[in-house]
Design a protein around this nucleic acid. Structure first.
Lengths: 221, 221, 221, 221
DNA sequence: AATGAATGAGCATTCATTCAT
DNA sequence: GATGAATGAATGCTCATTCAT
């Protein structure tokens, strides 16, 4: 409505309403991400965020009403991003074992990426003060995986390939097997470099092996 | 209690050196625990800690150089406590399956207790700022379980009961299976009431079933 | 309304020079009046004034160099308005007592009107910081009344109706008698609803009675 | 209890509880008085008050919870002071006319003193935002005068010296006559030096003359 | 000429730390 | 040795003013 759709794509938009420029908003969120993730909610300062974002304090407060709002918006932003990455990463084709293996690898990679870990750390830290935020964040990640996987396991059972009494718990277990111990170590900062491909493959293969051993449909008769 | 009534009259009263009275130190740590766990590192105030500990600010600063030192000491203190509780909880007798089941139940209970969760949240929150602290904390808990369980699994394998190529990874997997999904939910604050006995039993049984299915020694021949 | 439709085609549109459109100036002053009177000088914001005036910030700063200038201009504007209202209210016909009574009533009504009170409060508040402004404001109101009344009392004396050694002081005294105590109460916010007609009449009558008793010309001889 | 009553009077008290040292409290109030009276409530800064009081910001906030509280406390403090000064000034002996004259002079002096004027200006400025404060302030001053004078006029009437139908209104009128016009001029800052003795005497004498003329009891018969 | 997004100095308030008592 | 009043740097946030559009 305000932008002329015929102007070339590289032309910057003429003028944005206050607090409406998506590029600037992104810039602020990027600065806030740096600051919040490096220092945590309380130790992060609005001044630091301004500096990191290359934006003045006044502008910051046009885009976000206060520190808490900015934080919530940031976490929601990451939530959506992670959600989308996850959806893409989990869209894998193939037979049941191949798919599970790819799934496990994708989950391992996701949960050990520095960005996701930092998001999780800060959300966990604020879980007591902002329970809703933490819940939504969890739901966006874990829940999505669980639902996707759960649905899929149900199909596998109906096809007679697996025997799974409780699809949700099985999905939980699969995720936990895949990240067995590794996630916790990353979360506590014992490791920070991403796992090597070989380790991911081994973890994924092992998770699938155990999962299949536990859930394989018994031979009929 | 603190003064020895038998000391000669000319002996000055037995005082503790500054910052050396272990009882007062414990008092401070107890107050700090309350304050830090309720508010997190940054939001906790030294005044609040004094109030909670029933100690003056001057005294506080005799025992601990600053806020960070106090926090580190506190976490170390909890680390030791949790470690000891864990050791006691994991000293269970019985056959292999019964022991594993009891083990799983103990781990679930420990990891879903409000105190342990709060410790973990606050340590995770500070993991980026105080990596060593987080590392030591993790080691005290996870590591200990893993080592104990790992040693034990090795024995079971040597006895021909289980076939376990990598005892440490197997131990990881067992712990993860036991808390499958539950710990993450507690950590993110989706749940806060402790799990019911029935749920613990079901989780533990399932974890053991899967673990055994995956690792049972194949019949010889 | 602003553009003359009959102007020749080659004439550029008759625009006002920057900061010269009297209608816009009035609009700004109206908005400023609202904002300043509602919040006082310091708590009023330029943004609020823009909003109330329906004018952009840029425009505002074209018409007035800064907040202080705007305030001064506003007070001057009100000064003129009040002055004119006063002149109209004080143009009463009739005999000496009737005129004094009407005069007293007019003064009471003026000095207890919410708008005048707010003007006075804000000007008094700024008297220390902007002495000239306060002086001019006072002169516009009080002074005018005093001069008018003074001139008139002089006439009455010359006509032998009253005996008044110092017309100015007598005028002062009359005004004070009229608003006896009431103005102070309104100024301090003890009352805010306008006085009822009956009260005004009583106050006015009493003021005139006392004033006449004090100044009536003694019977000759 | 904490102070040894036997120590010499000039010895400073050993230690005061936080926010309890009356000397420091007075120091802060003195600084706040300077700053508030010079700039008004909003333009006064807590930093400025600290500087003026020779006290650190932390200390300031121990004695007063926030700016508003400090302001209220300050006004209440002045209120009590003014009240006491007033009581002393109004305790005059003598016959009815001498007393009224002394009374008028005392009121004029009080209402034209720089301190009282400044108090009034700032209280008037805040009357809309802090109506209770303004009311209490008014009551402490005006009301006290009015009550004292009113009671006294009633006695005079009962003694047959004056005929006063409404003692309160008469008291109002007397006060207004005494300060006829002068107070308003001081309030608006047209004058700031205290009135000379001669002017005070003239104003007082005139006020009494008019008041007596208006209220003198008619000769019996 | 008009706009309003951007700026950043300045505000009230908090709190880790010190040190006189 | 213990105390807690005092300190002042640092925080989140506001708003008068500017200037590119």
């Amino acid at each position: 409505m305000t932008d002329d759709p015929r102007r070339p794509d590289d032309t910057p938009p003429r003028r944005h309403a206050a607090g409406e420029d998506p590029q600037k908003r992104g810039q602020i969120l990027a600065g806030a991400w740096q600051e919040f993730m490096a220092k945590g909610f309380d130790a992060a300062t609005m001044n630091g965020i301004c500096r990191a974002a290359g934006v003045s304090k006044g502008t910051l407060y046009v885009y976000f009403r206060n520190k808490e709002d900015l934080f919530v918006a940031l976490v929601e932003h990451r939530r959506v991003q992670i959600s989308e990455q996850l959806r893409a990463a989990l869209a894998v084709p193939g037979g049941i074992e191949a798919r599970l293996t790819a799934y496990a690898a994708a989950i391992i990679r996701m949960l050990t990426s520095a960005e996701v870990l930092r998001s999780q750390r800060i959300v966990v830290a604020m879980a007591e003060r902002m329970p809703d935020l933490a819940r939504r964040f969890y739901d966006a990640g874990a829940r999505q995986v669980l639902n996707g996987l759960g649905r899929w396991l149900t199909e596998a059972e109906e096809a007679g390939l697996l025997r799974i009494p409780d699809a949700e718990r099985a999905a939980h277990q699969f995720v936990e097997l895949a990240t067995a111990g590794v996630w916790r170590q990353y979360l506590f900062g014992l490791r920070s470099d991403p796992p090597r491909q070989g380790e991911i493959d081994a973890l994924a293969a092992d998770a699938v092996r155990i999962f299949m051993a536990a859930h394989r449909s018994p031979p009929a008769g």
